[in-house]
């Protein structure tokens, strides 16, 4: 029975068009059955965020996303009172006969509560997937606040009382390793490292996402990317860039890479002037390694 569910996860992910490998499947499976948050690290553009999206679709539930940034505080993540609406409500009732107590009750009701992602996740009607994206961008104070919520699954709002989670969400935390995360957070999570994909995996991703692509072209693109990533670049291109490139080239009905083509489309995969220079300088070397005979030579 349990093993079934591993294969189940794999086919669910595959069914959603997400090409996985065994370690990803295992981590996702364990996070699900152990009800633990899953911490995913890895370079940019390898599909960390995508896992959460696919998981939500596969489990047929909603994805609630909390995008972290420098300066994100508890208010933005939990809830805020809709102050302006409350004020208007009071103004409207100024001439009415309601007592202060009654007024209090109305303005601190649910309709004036602006739910932010964490509160949304807790009060959701079925187990949602809560994606906490790029946690390393948020401050450390926020991280410890998050720990508290993730361990208790309850939020107290002074005016209303404590709200307990009806359904505990499946939490996915991603990080780009801009800053080290606290030991406490790591201890509570399962850990998954996703690296740039192996050649085979990338090839199947390309074929999956760009079904019309020429077989030879797809292979050449993936080989080229593999070699390009070995170069010393400011920003190493991820899968997203590979896909963009594949999509663009196959859209132009091209079936073979050549130097001129690569030169004119480098901007799709490299987003830094210095990187483009580096790539252009070593284009012949790259082509040699990829094993493509350039038409120009």
């Amino acid at each position: 029975m349990p093993n079934n569910s591993i294969q189940n996860i794999e086919s669910l992910l595959n069914g959603q068009g997400y090409i996985t490998d065994q370690s990803i499947v295992m981590s996702v499976h364990l996070a699900k059955v152990l009800k633990k948050p899953l911490l995913i690290e890895g370079p940019a553009g390898v599909g960390k965020t995508e896992i959460a999206k696919v998981m939500a679709r596969a489990l047929d539930t909603d994805l609630i996303r909390l995008q972290c940034y420098e300066g994100l505080d508890a208010n933005h993540a939990l809830y805020e009172w809709n102050y302006q609406h409350q004020l208007l409500q009071l103004k409207m009732e100024e001439s009415g006969s309601k007592t202060i107590e009654e007024k209090k009750k109305t303005i601190f009701g649910e309709e004036f509560l602006l739910k932010r992602p964490l509160l949304q996740a807790i009060t959701h009607h079925k187990h949602p997937v809560l994606l906490i994206d790029e946690i390393d961008r948020a401050d450390e104070e926020f991280e410890s606040f998050l720990l508290e919520v993730l361990s208790d699954w309850q939020i107290s709002i002074p005016e209303i009382g404590t709200i307990k989670a009806t359904h505990i969400p499946q939490v996915i935390v991603t990080s780009n390793r801009v800053r080290e995360l606290s030991e406490a957070l790591r201890r509570r999570c399962l850990y998954l490292w996703i690296d740039y994909p192996e050649f085979d995996k990338e090839l199947s991703i390309v074929k999956q996402k760009v079904p019309d692509i020429d077989e030879v072209l797809a292979e050449e693109i993936c080989k080229f990317m593999r070699e390009l990533r070995q170069k010393r670049l400011e920003k190493i291109p991820g899968i997203a860039e590979t896909l963009d490139w594949a999509l663009a080239l196959s859209g132009m009905h091209i079936d073979h890479l050549d130097k001129e083509l690569v030169q004119s489309t480098l901007g799709i995969i490299l987003k830094d002037w210095q990187d483009i220079r580096t790539a252009q300088d070593s284009l012949s070397e790259l082509f040699e390694k990829v094993g493509i005979q350039s038409k120009l030579d």
Binding site: Q22, S23, M26, S27, L30, E41, R177, E183, R186, R187, C189, L190, Y191, L192, W193
Partner: peptide
């Protein structure tokens, strides 16, 4: 191996 790795490893 993968099961142990998913649970015992906490960083890169």
């Amino acid at each position: 191996r993968l099961t142990l790795r998913s649970t015992l490893v906490k960083n890169l």
